[in-house]
Design a protein around this nucleic acid. Structure first.
Lengths: 247, 247
DNA sequence: TGGTGTGAAGTACTTCACAGCC
DNA sequence: GGCTGTGAAGTACTTCACACCA
């Protein structure tokens, strides 16, 4: 009966979907700023961000009333307001755990530093990798994980280890007080209430593309596919084919 | 008046949100398979996939009626059905454009091959990188892009170039007939109707984490923050502060 | 006049709760 | 008895359309 509260405590008012778009708006605004644009309408900004203008205005309205009717939004002011809302007016200390190909790419990724994210630690379990210099930082041994987190006040952990190691690392960073995790390992991490995990999974993105690609092809050119609601009946799919029709 | 159709043509029946979760279920199922589990309940599978069981059952019900009441789902059969639905029973040919740190990581990513994605080309504009051998493949010059796409029947393009190059590459792959793009460059690509673009953006994910992290900290320790719906009122925010209260 | 801000309407997704079947 | 499959109810998000105001 009682509607359950599924927003985290302090989210008062800003829908998750909006939060996910604010960084996109911010990027578009920065790019306008670079081009010396001082004022922008919701229509223009929406186009630059790849959304429609009504959505943009509704999103911005959750932050406050920062536009001018008949005119638009002042770029610089809006940049500031969104940055503040996202917490980018302060620096966030990040540690990257797992320095394989992906970890290396992340360590060198310019988009971090430029948005107030400071990589303060690279850690790996592989003795051959420990000690290597990557993007101006020395890779440390995973044994130092807890020390690095506490000493350097790391608040976001980026997990780029192999799948098998990820949960163990997650447990350790959480035990050390980290409550935000960006996970690149292809596993579902289980963490206590109050810890945020965001997941980036390359293979999942490709699979979603494959789904749509298959549909675009009109289902993979099999006659059976026309009757079934499934895309590509494999050889010998007769049985489940019948079941599909019953549904 | 007329409700507009915003699903792509052939999506008949499967919600986008469901499609996005099918790869997660598939991964959980594979892991069960590896452990020799033959049958699984919606409750167990849901836990392994990090969702609740009602959602899982609803999702699966869009594919067909593949479970047995009182028993659960046969793992192998379900793996097959989901794979088929996602189009993973066929191979997808992928080209990676941009072989910097990230492109390299992608080229070596095991999760591609194991899910029916075959990387058939690595391309870059940098003469120093062209000719290098990466994960058993030779990097080719970007000039060969169109040839590679047509000759090898590439159907998915992965763009891992710097932001400035991404739109140009997108235009070229689309002109060569590619209709599915996975974009790692931090820009909004504009593509014709019918082309699917999925975007992975590391910096956006971090910014979303930062937002929640800030909220967890109770807003950035400013007294005004308690009354305002914004996290950290800047100096001189009194005006919009009032407006916020009216909302 | 032109463009924001927002109630209201529409759509998509999630969760509940239980009938139905093994 | 236990677990799936699914209408119905609830929630979240999007889009419309226009009042309001610089």
């Amino acid at each position: 009966m009682t509607p359950r509260q599924n927003r985290t405590r302090a989210d008062r008012g800003i829908p998750e979907a909006t939060v996910a778009r604010l960084p996109v708006y911010l990027r578009a605004l920065h790019s306008l700023q670079d081009r010396g644009v001082a004022t922008v309408s919701s229509e223009e900004l929406a186009t630059a961000a790849g959304v429609n203008s009504a959505k943009l205005r509704k999103d911005l309205s959750h932050l406050g009333s920062y536009g001018t009717r008949g005119v638009g939004y002042e770029v610089e002011y809006l940049v500031y307001q969104i940055s503040r809302e996202l917490g980018l007016t302060q620096d966030w200390v990040v540690a990257i755990i797992g320095v394989g190909n992906l970890g290396r790419a992340l360590a060198g990724y310019g988009g971090f530093a430029s948005r107030g994210f400071r990589v303060a630690g690279l850690l790996d379990a592989d003795e051959d990798i420990v000690g290597q210099e990557i993007s101006g930082m020395t890779v440390e041994h995973i044994d130092r994980l807890e020390d690095v987190i506490t000493e350097r006040s790391v608040s976001i952990a980026v997990i780029a280890t192999p799948a098998a190691a990820a949960q163990g690392v997650a447990d350790r960073v959480v035990a050390s007080g980290v409550t935000s995790v960006l996970n690149f390992a292809p596993v579902v991490l289980s963490v206590p209430e109050g810890v945020d995990v965001r997941k980036v999974d390359l293979s999942i993105e490709l699979q979603i593309l494959a789904f749509h690609e298959q549909r675009k092809a009109g289902g993979p050119g099999d006659l059976d596919a026309l009757a079934s609601k499934n895309g590509a009946p494999p050889p010998g799919a007769a049985q489940q084919y019948v079941e599909a029709l019953e549904a």
